[in-house]
């Protein structure tokens, strides 16, 4: 049974400002797909389109969950999450004055996830022992790295099939970025997730991605079938590797 995500010819923006134009991006079952691009090129807007926070002016967004196709456009954010698509949002958006444990509990809002809340929480504590140590601490009082772990763990509490991650490396020290990327890969394998990740850090993202896209000025500047293609592309070399 497949879990995939197809974004076809999507254009979107805020008011009269167009951010995305004619973007087509696809993540197949079990793939890890990376969206590359520096700030302000539309990665976050694309994530918002997929999760129903921004309604595209054109195009289609279709998710396949356990083999069943769902048209996501027109659904509310909570309905999309309920299908099994979780987003680790930009800025993490934790509940700052709730504890780690309470944040995780609320992560399992979906009816199907609420039934196995204890098991999911044990799993999260196993993957992130630090969160177990801090379970009674307020989320807002933790370090940036711990908050990012919590945001990832909270998204997993919903038992998603498709995981969207918006810039997991933002604000983290390089060593923490590497650890976070490792965790994402570990979780993806353990849970059989389909992952779409927006990231600026090319080298780190390239370690776990199967494929990738480069967004420039709201358009797909390059679509690569492999990480090597990405690495060798002119646009990536120019933007990230400082050559060309």
């Amino acid at each position: 049974m497949g879990n995939s995500l197809s974004i076809e010819n999507v254009s979107a923006g805020y008011g009269s400002v167009t951010v995305l134009s004619d973007v087509s991006v696809h993540a197949g079952d079990g793939e890890t797909v990376v969206l590359l691009g520096t700030n302000g090129n539309g990665k976050t807007t694309l994530m918002r389109c997929i999760t129903g926070q921004v309604v595209p002016s054109r195009g289609t967004i279709v998710a396949e969950i356990d083999g069943e196709r769902h048209n996501l456009i027109g659904l509310s954010t909570e309905e999309i999450v309920d299908l099994g698509i979780s987003l680790v949002p930009e800025g993490r958006r934790l509940f700052p004055r709730l504890t780690v444990e309470e944040n995780l509990t609320l992560g399992a809002y979906r009816q199907s996830a609420r039934e196995r809340i204890a098991a999911s929480m044990d799993f999260c504590f196993e993957v992130f022992p630090r969160l177990k140590e801090r379970r009674t601490q307020l989320a807002g009082s933790m370090s940036g790295g711990e908050q990012q772990m919590l945001a990832l763990a909270r998204a997993l509490m919903a038992s998603p099939k498709i995981l969207l991650i918006d810039e997991p490396s933002v604000g983290l020290a390089p060593i923490l970025v590497a650890r976070m990327i490792d965790k994402i890969a570990e979780l993806k394998t353990a849970l059989g997730l389909t992952v779409m990740m927006a990231e600026q850090n090319f080298e780190q993202a390239a370690r776990i991605a199967n494929r990738g896209y480069v967004l420039v000025h709201g358009q797909v500047a390059f679509a690569a079938d492999s990480v090597d293609d990405l690495r060798n592309s002119d646009v990536v070399r120019r933007l990230y590797l400082g050559v060309g």
Binding site: R93, L106, Y109
Partner: peptide
Amino acid sequence: QDPLALRLVGG
């Protein structure tokens, strides 16, 4: 605390 965050967990 954050209505959008609640929507992002499916509430």
